[in-house]
């Protein structure tokens, strides 16, 4: 099996980078997470050297996702990428994501075997999680007419927590349709985890789009099958 995708956390502050690393590692102990916070002198700022060596350290063969905080963290990370050769650069992605939530979502996706693409997507969708219903909206008449909805009960012991949620997102992400689970975006790992659904909860899956029926059937099957935990 391929080694997990590595994660590099770039912050102006060494404490933020190390704190985000600690939080991410708690959920993903086997993932290589590297912190590149502060300047070479330990002040607030970003270090080209720390980022460059961090990319090397986080690269275990399956790629590296970089999470950044403010301005110069992103600019310095992009500059570090410019100094890589094409083959190296193809395996490194700077995720447009909030640094803490993105790092946790990326780490969980990596821990559960996600590809570079999956891990990047997990980070990118880790937004708006303070309000798990932020993306809830009324469906238009056309969407209602074309929508497919099915419900199921969570039968696996851990409910919809980290690993099953990551599994769910990976499957949902394979479909073109817009999919919601209990009102939240089914392709957003942190929003699904934010629902905090335990065993015995009912999940309602609604999809609209060209492959809506296939998507709902596949996801219901995944839920009813207990995410392979049974």
């Amino acid at each position: 099996m391929a080694s997990p995708v590595g994660i590099l956390i770039v912050s102006h502050s060494a404490k933020i980078a190390e704190g985000a690393l600690e939080l991410a590692k708690q959920m993903a102990p086997s993932v290589t997470v590297v912190a590149a916070g502060g300047t070479d002198g330990g002040a607030l700022g970003t270090s080209f050297e720390k980022i460059s060596s961090g990319i090397t350290a986080a690269q275990q063969g399956s790629g590296v996702v970089i999470l950044c905080d403010l301005g110069s963290a992103i600019l310095t990370a992009e500059t570090a990428l410019d100094f890589l050769d094409d083959a190296e650069r193809a395996l490194v992605v700077i995720a447009d994501a909030p640094i803490v939530e993105g790092a946790v979502a990326a780490a969980v996706a990596s821990e559960t075997g996600g590809s570079l693409h999956d891990v990047t997507a997990a980070a990118r969708t880790a937004t708006g999680i303070a309000d798990p219903h932020a993306d809830e909206r009324s469906l238009s008449r056309a969407e209602v007419q074309g929508a497919v909805e099915r419900s199921a009960t969570l039968v696996n012991p851990s409910g919809l927590h980290a690993r099953p949620a990551a599994e769910f997102v990976k499957h949902a992400g394979a479909f073109e349709s817009t999919i919601q689970i209990n009102g939240v975006d089914a392709k957003s790992l942190l929003r699904i985890m934010g629902l905090g659904l335990p065993k015995g909860s009912t999940v309602s899956i609604v999809a609209t789009g060209p492959d809506a029926a296939e998507a709902v059937d596949a996801l219901i099957e995944l839920v009813e099958g207990g995410f392979g935990e049974l």
Binding site: G41, T46, G71
Partner: peptide, 9 residues
């Protein structure tokens, strides 16, 4: 390598 802010890159 040395500026440490956005003006470095």
């Amino acid at each position: 390598s040395t500026v440490g802010g956005a003006s470095g890159p």
